[in-house]
Write a protein that binds this DNA or RNA. Structure first.
Lengths: 212, 212, 212, 212
DNA sequence: CATGAATGAGTGTTCATTCAT
DNA sequence: AATGAATGAACACTCATTCAT
């Protein structure tokens, strides 16, 4: 089976306008179906129906279902890495809290879009090795950004900081998952604020302030 | 289709020794296959092969694949609920830390056995409503135990405590998942100890102690 | 596979009292389950549950499921043949009508018990050749009795009488089926009476009497 | 599971020429296999082999086995209802006999095609409620047509006419079944003629004429 | 004489992928 | 560039029958 794009042979095949539109429709439909049905229940049939194209067309643009996932995952990885890099220094004062809060707000927004992909990585639902690695790398970059800020804020052993980073990543991701997909009763703003306070206090040494 | 259990509404069908052994073999095999392949990829075929029984035998003991999952889930729910109840008061001092650490150690051990089930609940991979509710109830009891200790330790609004409980549950579960299944480089004891410190400091107001 | 009774080797195996009781229980259960579930949906499992014996016991008494049916069919054939023989002369007057009516009443009663078997024959649901032949023979005897009475009552060509006999048999069996099993709104007595009038008038040349 | 037809509530999915041919092949094969093997023994496997298509193709055109039966049943119901409506007045003279005979001839022809479906209804082999109702409605319309003609021909109580209608329906269906499928030794023309005479004489008060 | 346990071939259905037009 | 049609391997579940105790 030859992938129609020779993916590792030199980038995506150039497309005419119509082709680009169809590919975009498929990617959007993929995202939507993934979000609605979840990773395992997402059928090619659902995707092509949502994109209003035929089965055959799908395979004109993607070598297989996983190939579509890969495309989405790459986008997600890019945005997550960028987001990770955007986290500024977090001090123990109100500025640090504000930085955290705004950053978490951006993460939650990103999760609204790419939650399915992030979850697939977090839950190790990705059979394909290459894809799994992309997830691992992305998560590592994300955790590294957190660890860097943690170390700036408070001297810690590298190992301990790594574990704290993992715990932070875990908490942020799951909490966001609960908020966006599992009906935890809290709006996004409040979620970002609460999470920021918890992290600020718990991981960045902020003092307990009365009444929040 | 008649479920092999509880035709007239109550209790498991009585089995002879051989039957009990086979049921146990199937449950064990189910746990093992679930752990290896995950919830969605676990095939009845895998399970019966692991249990070394025929396909038909499986359906002698369980009405269907989900029924086996249910049996495992019920066990898990029981143990988790019991564990939740066993969390004692957590003060800001070394006693509180010790209590937390020991309790987390027990959770990690339980996760070694029932991780697949807990994960299935956490990741909402359970199609069956009844089973999903069992998970929700179990998690709720778990979070409630945490919230109760949090409120004891520090007066907080109910809502805030609930969110903190959710965040805690999320962090504990995922961190344990990383440790037990995703190769986070740390042994169980250290994991319990680290997690205990993080939680103690972050959620129960323990002071930052030098050098850990 | 050796049938436990060597059926064509010299009659049924002699049984002790206990054995006879078990066999009877199975035959009764077979009849009951057949009546409830119909020929195709009758499972060995249903039968042994109704008879309160184990699966193994069933095969102690019958070589297979069909073997039980055979036993029931033989009983039914005997009773039907006997009933066929009991039809007396049917003249065009009130005596003929009474004879018909009483005979039909007895048929309906028999149908209450052996309807499933009769239907299986009528509907050709019997895969086994030997059993099918038994049915064909029994029906033939039944039809022959009717034909004999028809010819007595009115001279007809043999061929025409045969066809009339077949039509009569068909009508009697199906009408009774409707009455006993399909909820045709009429009690058994009235059914016998009505059918008797229709047949008497339609096949035995009775004059149309006012008001019935 | 999405039924291949009428997602938004109306009408069959449009097909191209090839698709229509395949659907027709499947319907024909279904009819054929049903006729050969009967309702309960008809396997999807038999049908696709007869239609020379793959297993998967079957489910491209029908949601499941029952759905194919439904399609056949609907056709049958339409034709039967139309036939029922086409029965003209039946007087006691030769015109009435001719009308009956021609009508019965048409019924026998229809039975050649749709006998399996009619039989499934008559023998209550249809598990699906909706389908069973369709059968009941169709039979009711059929019987009603007969009853209407009976009442025209001879004043009777409504109840008695209804029972006579049921008996007539029973006789006509079974007799035709014997003729077309059970090897009753008579050709279709003669069958129609004989049945017409029997019914004319027996139910419509025709005098016994010599020579037959 | 009786039982509970075990078997495995058979059946309906799904869905990612390929193909002819 | 696009389509509708076709494929077949994979999977869950059933049930008549056999077997060890």
């Amino acid at each position: 089976m030859v992938p129609p794009e020779g993916r590792d042979g030199g980038g995506p095949k150039p497309r005419r306008r119509q082709g680009q539109r169809t590919e975009a429709k498929l990617l959007d439909a993929g995202m939507q179906v993934l979000a609605e049905r979840g990773f395992h229940s997402a059928r090619v049939d659902d995707i092509v129906r949502a994109a209003q194209v035929s089965h055959g067309t799908f395979y004109l643009y993607f070598a297989n279902k996983e190939d579509l996932f890969r495309a989405l995952a790459v986008r997600c990885a890019d945005e997550m890495t960028e987001l990770a890099a955007s986290l500024g220094a977090v001090d123990a004062g109100p500025d640090g809290l504000a930085e955290l809060r705004s950053w978490l707000g951006r993460f939650i927004a990103l999760y609204r879009t790419y939650g399915v992909v992030i979850r697939a990585w977090m839950e190790d639902q990705v059979a394909n090795r290459e894809l799994a690695r992309l997830g691992a790398r992305t998560f590592a970059a994300f955790a590294a950004a957190l660890v860097a800020r943690l170390e700036e804020a408070r001297p810690t052993s590298r190992h301990e900081a790594d574990l704290a980073g993992a715990a932070l990543l875990a908490m942020i991701e799951r909490f966001t998952y609960f908020v966006t997909s599992r009906g935890l009763d809290v709006d996004e703003d409040e979620a970002a604020a609460t999470l920021a306070v918890l992290i600020h206090r718990g991981f960045f040494g902020a003092p307990v302030t009365a009444g929040r």
